[in-house]
Simulated scan of single mutants.
Amino acid sequence: MKIYILIITCLYTTFLFAQNNIEGKVTYTISYNKANQKEIVETENNKQAIKAINNSKDITASLFFSNNESLYKLDTPMENDADQGINLTRTFAGKGDVFYNDVSNDIHLLQKSNAAGKFLINKKPITWEIKQESKKIGTYNCFKAIKKDTLNSNNKTVAWFTPQIPVSFGPKEYNGLPGLILELEHSLLSYRATKIKLNSKRPVRIEKPNAGIKVTEEEYRNLLKDYFPGFFKERKK
Rank of each mutant, 00 (worst) to 15 (best):
I165T: 12
F119H: 04
I30L: 12
K135I: 00
T14W: 07
N222T: 07
Y4D: 15
I7V: 07
K236G: 04
F15K: 06
I137K: 02
I196H: 05
K25M: 14
N68G: 09
A145S: 00
G96Y: 12
N141E: 14
F232M: 11
F17D: 00
Q19C: 08
S187H: 08
K197V: 14
I213L: 14
K112Y: 08
I206D: 04
I59C: 04
K38T: 12
K38M: 08
Y32N: 10
P209N: 03
K34V: 02
K34N: 05
G85D: 11
S104Y: 12
D81I: 01
Y12F: 04
N67F: 03
S31T: 13
E234R: 07
L182N: 08
N175R: 04
S200A: 14
N141Y: 03
L184N: 00
C142W: 01
F228I: 02
G170V: 00
S153I: 08
T43S: 10
T91K: 15
K131E: 05
I59A: 09
V158I: 11
G170Q: 00
T29M: 05
G117D: 06
I59R: 09
T89H: 03
L109W: 13
D149G: 04
F119Q: 07
N68T: 13
M78W: 12
A82F: 13
L63I: 02
K124D: 13
L63D: 07
T29F: 01
K135Y: 00
K172N: 02
C142P: 08
N101F: 10
H108C: 05
I3Q: 14
F92R: 05
N36Q: 10
E79H: 10
W128H: 01
L182Q: 04
K135P: 05
M1R: 11
Q37E: 15
R205K: 15
L120H: 07
I196E: 03
N87Q: 08
D81Y: 09
L184C: 01
T29A: 06
P125E: 02
Y4G: 09
K195Y: 10
K195S: 15
D83M: 14
E129M: 12
S168A: 11
L223Y: 06
F15G: 02
G230P: 02
H186N: 11
S200R: 06
E207T: 13
I130H: 00
N68L: 08
K214W: 01
P163H: 11
V167K: 10
N46Y: 12
N20I: 08
K112N: 11
K195M: 12
A82D: 12
L223S: 12
I121Q: 05
T9V: 10
N80Y: 12
I59H: 09
H108T: 01
T43Y: 02
K124F: 10
